[in-house]
C-alpha cells in the first residue's frame, strides 16, 4: 500500500463527507438561500430592461456574468475562510498529527471546495431558468463551454483562495484581504455593467484577474453570437480566456504547495491556543 496514495484516497472521502455535511447544515443552506434571493431579486427588478445596443433583456446578459463572478468569489473565499479558521480551531493541527494527514487534508479541501461550486451555481441557475426566458442561446455546445470555463476557472481561482487562507494572520483578516478586493474586482470586471464604460487603466487591471475572464467565458457560453458586439474588441477572445486562466492556474499550482507547507510547518498547539484566546477576546 502506497501511503501517499492511501492518504489521497482518504482525502477524497473526507471532501465528500464535508460536502454532504455542508448540504445538511442549516447554516450553509441559509447562505445559499441568501445568495439566490439576492441575485434573483436583482434580476427580477431589471427583468424588462433591454441591454443597450441589443435586443437582449438584462437577465440574459447579467446571469452568465454573475455566475462567472460567483465562481471567482466562492472559490476564493471558500478555501480562504476554511483554511484560516481551520488553522485557528485545530483542524489543521489534527491533520499534522497523523501520518500524511496534511496530504489528506489538502485533498479534502480541494474536493470539498470544488463540489461546493455545484450548489452555489445551481441555486441561481435552476430558479433562473424557471423565472426567465431565453437564458441559454447555445444549446449543448453552450453547456459544454459552461463546463470547461467552470473547470478552468476553478483551477485558476482555488489556489488563490488557499494562498490567501494560508497567509492571513487570522480569520477576520480574510474579510479585509479577500472580501474587499473581490468586491472591488466584481465592480470593475464587467459583472454588473460593461467594462468598457470604465477608464482605460481600470480595464487593464480588471483583465489581469480571473474574474473578468470567467464572466466573459460564461457570456460566450450563454449569449447568442450577435452579443459579441458588447465585448472588448468585438470578440469572445476564447484563446485569451484559456491563456489568462491557465496562467493563474499554473502559478497557483507552483506557489500553493510552498505556501501550504510554510503554514503547516508553523502550526502548533500553542498557536491554536493563542487563536482561541484571541477569539474569546474578540467575542467579548
Amino acid at each position: 500500500m502506497n501511503p501517499t496514495r492511501h492518504a489521497v484516497r482518504l482525502g477524497l472521502a473526507r471532501g465528500w463527507t464535508e460536502f454532504k455535511q455542508s448540504l445538511q447544515s442549516p447554516q450553509d443552506q441559509g447562505f445559499y438561500l441568501f445568495w439566490a434571493v439576492a441575485v434573483l431579486t436583482y434580476l427580477l427588478i431589471n427583468r424588462n430592461n433591454e441591454v443597450e445596443g441589443t435586443t437582449l433583456l438584462l437577465p440574459s446578459v447579467a446571469m452568465p456574468s454573475i455566475i462567472g463572478g460567483l465562481v471567482a468569489f466562492s472559490v476564493v473565499m471558500g478555501p480562504a475562510f476554511s483554511l484560516a479558521s481551520e488553522r485557528e480551531d485545530g483542524t489543521l493541527l489534527r491533520a499534522k498529527a497523523v501520518p500524511r494527514g496534511l496530504v489528506g487534508y489538502v485533498t479534502g479541501q480541494v474536493v470539498y471546495q470544488s463540489l461546493n461550486l455545484l450548489p452555489s451555481v445551481a441555486v441561481i441557475l435552476v430558479p433562473g431558468f424557471l423565472l426567465f426566458d431565453e437564458l441559454m442561446h447555445r444549446g449543448v455546445a453552450g453547456w459544454l463551454t459552461v463546463s470547461w470555463v467552470l473547470a478552468l476557472g476553478l483551477v485558476a481561482t482555488l489556489p488563490i483562495g488557499m494562498i490567501l487562507g494560508s497567509l492571513v494572520k487570522s480569520t477576520q483578516m480574510v474579510a479585509t484581504w479577500g472580501m474587499l478586493p473581490i468586491m472591488v474586482l466584481a465592480g470593475i470586471s464587467g459583472i454588473f455593467y460593461p467594462v468598457q464604460q470604465l477608464w482605460g487603466w481600470v480595464q487593464v487591471v480588471a483583465q489581469v484577474f480571473p474574474m473578468y475572464w470567467l464572466g466573459l467565458g460564461m457570456r460566450s457560453a450563454f449569449l447568442p453570437p450577435s452579443a459579441v458586439a458588447l465585448e472588448i474588441g468585438g470578440s469572445w477572445r476564447t484563446l485569451e480566456t484559456v491563456g489568462v486562466l491557465g496562467a493563474w492556474a499554473l502559478v497557483g499550482l507552483l506557489v500553493t504547495p510552498v505556501v501550504l507547507r510554510r503554514m503547516a510547518r508553523r502550526q502548533s498547539g500553542s498557536q491554536v491556543e493563542a487563536a482561541r484566546q484571541a477569539a474569546l477576546q474578540w467575542v467579548r
Binding site: M1, P3, H6, A7, L10, A13, G90, P99, V272
Partner: peptide, 30 residues
C-alpha cells in the same frame, strides 16, 4: 507517535465515530 491535542471547535459537523474512522485510516499503512 500519538498526540492528544486541546481543540475547541474543529470538526464541529462530524460525529465522533466518523472522525475516528477517518483519522484512524491514516495509520493503516503503518
Amino acid at each position: 507517535t500519538g498526540v492528544v491535542l486541546q481543540s475547541w471547535r474543529d470538526h464541529a459537523r462530524w460525529t465522533s465515530r466518523r472522525l475516528l474512522a477517518h483519522l484512524g485510516g491514516y495509520y493503516t499503512p503503518y
